[in-house]
Design a protein around this nucleic acid. Structure first.
Lengths: 352, 352
DNA sequence: CTGAAAGCGCTTACAG
DNA sequence: CTGAAAGCGCTTACAG
């Protein structure tokens, strides 16, 4: 006790913790406050009543000594790391970082850390990254929109980690789902065009059948249908989610027998490519032809004319995913799988 | 021993680890291989010679059971978390994510995790984030370009964590430094303009005196000096690092008594704003006036005309920072503070 | 070349 | 309302 007190006084004295050697431990707090480590622990966790006066004294000492529980020691005991993981195909993609930012916002408030891992689409990166996260005992994992196999996902849930997927079907044993209302977003965008008297509305998609593209196309069809407008086969082009794809797709639809007065693109990059084609053909946008994007990447507002597009609520997706994970982790784990669908928001600019 | 073997067999059998309960531990490996946990540990770490046959047997069992050491247990013992941290003002900024990607690339290869934390410039976020990372016992921390105070940095080194700063002076006790050759990059860019016979070269800076801006301006001056060209006061405008700033700055310099034939901008956003102004004034770029950016953000290649700019080697910065940290962590810690300077790369496009 | 055992810093039954 | 002690899963002196 005496020796302990002296040590503590020394730490407290000497500008706190030199070289990690004098790091304050729970036992230092306990002896300084004249209680057991059990009590200090319970003051920290609130899992057992502690008399007001004892609590106050302990909290004061914690403050004064700047005590912070060692996460490794705590983790070893609790089998929890207080860490959330996000796996995405491309860590530099702004959507993905916005998702990460949203997760972090929620996680940090609960004293959880967030790690974001990149697992490129090509090659077998995903299983390896998942293996690493599981080995690290990450408490909850968010898996981005992917070709994640059933096996990959099972690996996560089998390890005891909680799982949230960003898209895909809701199914038991596959964790919770958070996704954006893609179909509705595109429906709103096309309806916006219809409301502005555009009638021959073309569509340039990315690869057909791929998840976000498929849903966006459905929104396009539904909006035309609602407006009593036909889907002209020659006004629909399938290409890739790139600027190059947009150029090619726009060339195709703009050369239709009866050209369109608007071109709806499956994402902003395609729309920027379509803008190139329109400019090269001397077609003024939006006077001669309207062009719209989707996602609202930074460049959408920087090109000229600025793109009318739909905002992808990425940050909100991240927030929701983290909250779902924390609910399973902190609250009761039970309850059926849940799905959260987030609304998109139309961003009208100059191009349509 | 018998009971242990049975347990192991069960785990091995039952589709490995159900609910984290049957997680394989070092003792399972040891009993299955018929050696002590000491030996398994040494096979893992390589810190003690193990006979070839024993090693082979143990490695086989590790493989077969899919053993992964528990990071909390290991961390508690070694006082290391095998985690690197990156602190940046804005987690959605592509530079910062590129830095994170570079760090992760190196870190993952050494079985380190990387966490990136956002601490906005405004308000007292930085001390709080640093506190969290230190409390988490993060082994090495990279602090982005900031108004980090001496006290903030001391807090990191005092805790025993290794520190790398991205910019700022090299000084003992402040960790290692990684930075890009900003001055040289701008020098090359302006020399490129001189080589293309531009002679009245204007400069639009962000806030004067701020770190990256200051160095870029120095490169501009040096290049003009080398070419025997004067720095015209009326051709230099100070504004903010935004598109709006670029518009205002361009309006100022383009309305000079004797207008410039080229406008060098301190970053890409400013250049995109300058492009707006030139377009509005009916000035063709680059025929009537050349415009250049700096950083090579995604939008730089998406605007029209595409921006001539300088690539910021962000990913490489991340790699170097992680390597520096790992050197201190894995090798000997000693040695004086080091600085790594990374070359920029000129990216000629249409605008100059 | 190998093993038995201490101990890292916590949390949590168990006991009062 | 509080405390003594076991134990989480590793690594590493110490010993042979």
């Amino acid at each position: 006790m005496t020796s302990n007190t002296r040590t503590t006084a020394l730490d407290n004295n000497g500008r706190l913790m030199v070289h990690g050697a004098g790091r304050i431990k729970i036992v230092d707090v306990a002896s300084e406050a004249g209680v057991s480590v059990t009590t200090v622990s319970h003051v920290l966790s609130g899992r057992r009543p502690v008399s007001a006066s004892t609590r106050a004294r302990v909290e004061d000492v914690i403050q004064r000594l700047g005590y912070q529980a060692d996460p490794s020691a705590r983790g070893l005991r609790t089998q929890r790391t207080r860490t959330l993981g996000l796996v995405v195909p491309d860590i530099t993609n702004p959507f993905n970082t916005a998702i990460a930012a949203g997760m972090q916002e929620i996680a940090l408030a609960h004293e959880y850390l967030t790690v974001v891992c990149e697992a490129p689409m090509d090659g077998p990166h995903l299983p390896e990254v998942i293996r690493q996260l599981v080995a690290r005992r990450i408490d909850g994992i968010v898996v981005g929109r992917y070709g994640a196999t059933r096996q990959d996902l099972d690996r996560i849930t089998a390890s005891g980690s909680k799982l949230v997927r960003l898209g895909g079907p809701l199914a038991p044993g596959l964790g919770d789902v958070v996704r954006a209302a893609e179909t509705e977003g595109m429906y709103d965008l096309v309806s916006h065009l219809v409301g502005r008297d555009y009638r021959r509305i073309a569509y340039i998609g990315g690869a057909p059948g791929v998840e976000p593209g498929e849903e966006r196309f459905a929104g396009y069809r539904k909006a035309l249908e609602t407006a009593g407008l036909p889907v002209h086969q020659e006004l629909v082009a399938w290409t890739s989610f790139t600027r190059e794809g947009g150029r090619a797709g726009a060339t195709a639809v703009l050369n239709a027998t009866e050209p369109p007065d608007a071109v709806v693109c499956a994402n902003d990059l395609i729309a920027i490519g379509a803008l190139d084609t329109a400019r090269a053909a001397g077609l003024r946008v939006p006077d001669r032809v309207a062009i719209t994007g989707y996602d609202d990447i930074e460049a959408a507002s920087l090109v000229s004319p600025a793109l009318t597009t739909v905002l992808n609520p990425a940050r909100e997706i991240g927030r929701s995913a983290a909250q779902l994970l924390l609910d399973r982790l902190e609250g009761e784990d039970s309850g059926p799988a849940r799905e959260i669908v987030l609304a998109h928001r139309l961003v009208p600019r100059e191009s349509a």
